[in-house]
Simulated assay, not measured.
Amino acid sequence: MSLSNQDILFASLVGSEVIKLVPRFEALENELAKHVLPTVPFLPIRNRLDIDTGHPSEIIGDVWLADRPESESEQFFPLSLSIDDGKTYFLLPYEPMITISSKNNLVKRNVAKQDPEKNNKFQGTIKERWSRDDYQIQITGYLMGSMLKGSVKDCFPIVDFQKLVKVLTSANNIKVECPLLEQLGINYIAIEEFSFPFTKGENVQAYNIKAVSDFSYELLIEETNN
Rank of each mutant, 00 (worst) to 15 (best):
R68T: 12
K149M: 04
K121E: 08
W64R: 15
T88P: 13
I51F: 14
I189N: 11
K20G: 06
Q183G: 07
I98Q: 07
K210M: 07
E58V: 13
K87C: 04
F161T: 12
S71F: 07
D160H: 10
V176E: 09
V159S: 08
I191A: 10
P96K: 03
V152S: 08
E31A: 14
Q6H: 05
P96L: 10
N172C: 12
Q123K: 13
P56A: 08
V107D: 07
F198T: 06
P116K: 10
E192C: 04
K175G: 09
P44S: 11
D214P: 00
K127Y: 10
I45K: 13
E26T: 11
L3K: 12
N105P: 02
L164R: 01
V165T: 10
I83Y: 00
Q136T: 03
G141W: 08
R129C: 02
D154T: 11
D7C: 05
I191K: 07
S12Y: 15
L37Y: 15
A206W: 10
P157R: 05
E202L: 11
V40R: 09
Q136K: 02
D214Y: 12
P96C: 09
N30R: 12
M144D: 05
T125A: 13
K103E: 15
S82R: 02
F42K: 00
I191S: 12
T125N: 13
L181A: 06
S2L: 06
T39G: 03
R132C: 01
E193D: 15
V204Y: 13
N187V: 00
K163E: 14
S170E: 14
D67C: 11
L184S: 13
R24M: 08
W64N: 15
K127L: 13
K34W: 02
S73Q: 11
S4W: 04
S71H: 12
N203M: 10
A206H: 10
G61Q: 09
I186R: 01
K149L: 08
M144R: 15
N173K: 12
K113R: 15
V40A: 02
L21Y: 15
S73R: 10
N5A: 11
E58Q: 06
D85L: 02
L184P: 04
I139K: 03
K127N: 15
L143F: 12
K118G: 00
G61H: 09
K163Q: 11
G124E: 11
P23Y: 06
D115L: 09
G201S: 03
Q114F: 05
L180W: 05
R129F: 05
L220V: 14
R129P: 00
V167G: 06
I174Q: 03
G61K: 06
E193I: 00
T199W: 00
I19Y: 12
G145P: 09
S82H: 03
N208F: 14
I98G: 03
K108Y: 14
P96E: 13
D7M: 03
V204Q: 02
V14N: 03
A112C: 02
Q75N: 05
T88W: 11
Y142E: 04
Q75A: 09
L21Q: 14
P96W: 08
I59S: 06
E17L: 05
K153W: 01
L21E: 13
N30A: 13
A206R: 03
I221V: 13
G150Y: 08
I98A: 07
G185V: 00
K166V: 14
S82C: 07
K127W: 07
R24V: 06
N225R: 02
I158S: 06
S71G: 15
